[in-house]
């Protein structure tokens, strides 16, 4: 996607322009009445400096180009991230949507901080590009919308856990049952990622080599219950973000006692129910969650 840019606009121009006009008019009046041609010519030169200094940045800003070289793919709402952009000239850059601190970078690659505040995917960033070239007398800026190199998934900020869910007897039972499971008991079921507490001898080395992470054998006991968390977001707005945050908080609380937790969400492609084992898994899933047609937020846990 090509960056979409707006027209350059001066930044806090009233003071410099008024000051310059007053100074030039005063100079012209004095020069005219002094009768000295050189004073008037010098005034013309000063006018040149003023025109180039006040108007030049408009051209410089209009010619500014920017593209995103690389960016992280995951973050949490409210956490600062830095994306690497490439520019064709020195400029002052500030992320506007999502917002970030203004920073000055030279021509070439540079890091721009921004702080996503909303959960969900981020495909583009609106920047405010500003330049005061060639003399640094007045800043002009324009807004451009630049596509990220890769989507940035923003996880919700963990909110307070749903005490009702955690306090539910069924869920509490599940929690009690699902301390780190003793995989030595029961019928072999498959493999799963290693979690702290798993016996060393349960490590399944072929699967570990295949997955690139430590995997352990898992047995299935008929009485074993996996808590399932179904997240239904009211919308994709702030209410949805808040609900996702509470869901994440709840999920982390569940994961602290039992792993995995079955998480049911609705994603763009449709409903998805899958076990999550870690905080990262949970955050990724909730970053991708979208609203369900059901309008009220519900966080339910049930025994599976």
């Amino acid at each position: 996607m090509r960056p979409r840019g707006g027209l350059p606009r001066p930044t806090k121009a009233a003071g410099p322009i008024a000051g310059s006009v007053v100074a030039l008019v005063a100079w012209a009046a004095v020069a005219h009445n002094s009768g000295s041609g050189w004073v008037q010519a010098l005034g013309g030169l000063l006018a040149g400096f003023v025109v180039a200094g006040l108007g030049g940045p408009a051209f410089a800003t209009a010619r500014l180009k920017i593209s995103v070289v690389t960016n992280p793919t995951e973050t949490t709402a409210g956490q600062p991230v830095a994306i690497v952009v490439a520019t064709n000239a020195p400029l002052r850059i500030e992320a506007v949507v999502p917002s970030g601190e203004a920073t000055t970078i030279g021509a070439g690659p540079g890091r721009v901080p921004l702080v996503p505040t909303r959960r969900g995917p981020l495909y583009q960033v609106t920047f405010k590009l500003a330049s005061a070239a060639p003399f640094g007398l007045l800043w002009w800026h324009k807004r451009v919308v630049v596509a990220l190199a890769r989507p940035l998934w923003v996880a919700p900020v963990p909110g307070p856990p749903e005490l009702a869910v955690l306090g539910d007897s069924a869920a509490q039972a599940a929690l009690d049952l699902h301390r780190p499971r003793d995989a030595r008991v029961g019928e072999p079921r498959g493999v799963r990622p290693y979690v702290a507490g798993d016996p060393r001898r349960l490590v399944h080395w072929p699967a570990t080599a295949h997955r690139g992470e430590l995997m352990v054998r898992e047995a299935e006991r008929p009485e074993a219950a996996v808590p399932e968390l179904r997240v239904i977001l009211p919308d994709d707005g702030p209410d949805g973000d808040a609900a996702a945050g509470r869901a994440l908080g709840t999920l982390l609380a569940l994961l602290a006692h039992s792993s995995p937790v079955m998480l049911a969400t609705t994603e763009r492609d449709g409903p998805r129910t899958e076990a999550v084992y870690t905080k990262t898994d949970a955050a990724r899933r909730l970053a991708r969650a979208v609203a369900h047609p059901v309008t009220h937020p519900v966080v339910q846990a049930e025994r599976r």
Partner: peptide, 19 residues
């Protein structure tokens, strides 16, 4: 830019006169 603006200034502005 300086040269052009200065030249325009010299051409456009009325010749100085002594008060």
């Amino acid at each position: 830019t300086l040269a052009v603006v200065a030249l325009v200034g010299i051409v456009v502005l009325p010749a100085p006169s002594v008060s």
